[in-house]
Design a binder for these strands. Structure first.
Length: 420
DNA sequence: TCTGGGGTCCTAGGACCC
DNA sequence: TCTGGGGTCCTAGGACCC
């Protein structure tokens, strides 16, 4: 095996990607689903999309982000579930702990993906491919599988991880990255989506090799200030850093949005939905200990594109009694009453760092400088009850009045109890 | 019967200040 | 009285990722 050839020169970055993660966990937990097509995602009749399709479903043409209605047509006998996110998070944490056990330099990019740095001499002197092989085996022992790419930087590692799936290990040895990358389509590079791909194609650039050799003027035209960075990536010469695992998790925003299974047209329904979305954002802000200054409202009509509106509040807050009224005003600035609403979202961002928040004589400001209404105590009490007894256990009058329609899966919302 | 729900980052224009 | 230009903040929207 070539993993034993010679010493590795320079940085060794790995990308571990869990194979069809959500579907694999479902098959692990439901032995009777193993070997069968399993689809995790929204139901076809609720305008849902496929989150993950098991490998048994993929030959039918089913893939992530496809509308569930289309997936149903392609694979009518598939087993459907909305998924069990707490379980995925728990499983993910166990797997990330394996990585952390192998090297302290781990960058988790999502629930099912993480970069890790196994540069010889940085933490251990073991050959990178040996470590990667062991990670793969340790993950498999938990009952799911991963694919790993290994190379000199994140771009190479990421692309290598996609080369051989599931349960692959693709090693791009130092010095071979340019040859590895050059023939690939530009879209293989993370950050280049269909829109950028089309703009590059118009300039005759279709492969990563062509991108690496493109004139500086063209790169700047397409990527702006990032032109040089993209050239380095394409040439396989980007220098990546993977920081120590306990680097602070700096969340930039917390939001909640919903596509309704049936459009909302009544103002009372739209405002009630906004308030419910806001409550969940408030709860998550408080759980994370965050308070933000900017409120964003997102709206999508059934026909036509989406709109967003945002506004800065005078003080950071984690209290929906403060930011939902602001969100309602924003909503009124973009919503034309009467037009059916397909999607609604509320977000809070612009979190203040500790300190430096000035107090206001007329506002109550807590120890973090965040502003709260006199109803925040009630919200906090409800957080506690919810944690203990579940989300449906408490609610305001509007939830009792509109909530059934808005919360009940079969009427409006996609968010739903698992089907199994 | 196309297009969910979380995010991040970048750009561009207008307001405002110097 | 007419005027330029730079910097910064705010907002809307787009592109992209998993």
């Amino acid at each position: 095996m070539d993993a034993f050839f010679g010493a590795w020169n320079g940085p060794a970055i790995g990308l571990m990607d869990l194979d069809a993660f959500f579907a694999s966990v479902e098959q692990l937990d439901h032995p009777e689903w193993r070997g069968k097509p399993v689809i995790v995602g929204g139901l076809p009749e609720e305008r849902g999309v496929v989150s993950t399709a098991s490998y048994e479903a993929r030959p039918f043409g089913v893939h992530s982000a496809m509308s569930s209605a289309q997936a149903k047509r392609l694979c009518p006998h598939a087993i459907w579930t909305h998924g069990h996110f707490d379980r995925y998070r728990e499983m993910s944490a166990q797997i990330m702990a394996i990585l952390a056990d192998e090297t302290p330099y781990v960058d988790q990019v999502s629930i099912d993906e993480a970069f890790f740095d196994v540069t010889p001499g940085r933490f251990s002197s073991e050959q990178p491919a040996i470590i990667a092989q062991r990670i793969s085996e340790r993950v498999a022992a938990l009952g799911v599988t991963c694919s790993i790419g290994l190379g000199c930087n994140k771009t190479v590692a990421k692309i290598a991880s996609e080369r051989d799936k599931p349960r692959g290990l693709t090693v791009v040895y130092p010095g071979t990255e340019e040859a590895f990358l050059a023939p690939l389509p530009v879209g293989a590079i993370s950050g280049i989506g269909s829109s950028t791909e089309a703009r590059l194609a118009k300039r005759g650039i279709r492969t990563v090799g062509q991108l690496a050799r493109a004139p500086r003027r063209v790169l700047e035209e397409v990527f702006g200030v990032n032109g040089e960075v993209m050239r380095l990536r394409a040439a396989g010469r980007e220098v990546s850093t993977v920081s120590a695992i306990d680097a602070p998790d700096d969340v930039k925003s917390v939001s909640n949005e919903r596509t309704f299974a049936r459009d909302l047209t009544e103002r009372a329904d739209v405002e009630a939905a906004l308030a419910l979305l806001g409550e969940s954002v408030g709860r998550r802000l408080r759980r994370k200990g965050l308070a933000g200054r900017t409120v964003t409202v997102k709206l999508r009509y059934t026909y036509g594109q989406g709109h967003t509106a945002q506004r800065k509040l005078p003080h950071p807050t984690d209290d929906e009694n403060i930011f939902v009224p602001a969100a309602r005003e924003l909503l009124n600035s973009i919503w034309h009453p009467g037009l059916p609403v397909r999607l609604l979202g509320v977000g809070v961002s612009d979190f203040d760092l500790a300190g430096g928040v000035q107090t206001d004589l007329f506002c109550e400001v807590d120890d973090r400088g965040a502003v709260a209404s006199d109803k925040r105590d009630l919200a906090v009490a409800m957080d506690k009850v919810r944690e203990k007894f579940g989300n449906a256990s408490v609610g305001f009058g509007r939830q009792a009045r509109f909530g059934r329609d808005i919360v009940r899966p079969d009427k409006f919302l996609n968010q739903n109890k698992p089907t199994d």
